[in-house]
């Protein structure tokens, strides 16, 4: 891997099932993540993805690319436009820096997840790929 390298995009269909399954798997029972009626009562057009699911998807995007030996060091995300059912989020990533560290090369990857409304998430992931690992 080298600075400037672009990761292949990952298209994530934002289904109602993904939003609800992600919320429950992250033990987040806030009604706006599973109950459309209550979400609407609070002014949202529909349920929307919780931040823990976004975090999980960003982590998956990085380890899908760098392989099972890759070790996540840091995931920092900022949320923007909400992910509602029926939308599609496309995650893209760019390697910003690569450093040699004792465990292997450590890359800083800028990640953006864009949906139909705008940028759902912008973030930075630090990942170490041991020698012999992917990429």
């Amino acid at each position: 891997m080298r600075p400037g390298e672009e990761l292949p995009p990952l298209e994530v269909p934002i289904t109602r099932t993904l939003i609800v399954a992600g919320a429950i798997a992250s033990r987040d029972y806030q009604d706006v993540h599973h109950d459309a009626e209550l979400a609407r009562a609070k002014g949202s057009p529909d349920i929307f993805m919780n931040i823990l699911t976004t975090n999980g998807l960003v982590g998956r995007y990085i380890t899908d690319h760098f392989g099972p030996t890759a070790i996540l060091r840091k995931v920092a995300i900022r949320l923007g436009a909400p992910n509602h059912p029926g939308d599609t989020m496309v995650l893209t990533g760019t390697v910003e820096r690569v450093e040699a560290t004792p465990e292997g090369d450590t890359a800083t990857v800028g990640v953006v997840g864009a949906n139909g409304v705008g940028r759902h998430v912008t973030g930075t992931v630090t990942v170490t790929v041991p020698a012999g690992g992917a990429a």
Binding site: D28, Q30, V32, H33, A39, K42, G43, S44, P45, F48, M49, N50, I51, L79, G80, A81, P82, V117
Partner: peptide, 12 residues
């Protein structure tokens, strides 16, 4: 969730 179309973050 006032003005949700302008949301720049997520509740909850």
């Amino acid at each position: 969730c006032e003005g949700h179309e302008e949301h720049e973050g997520q509740e909850g």
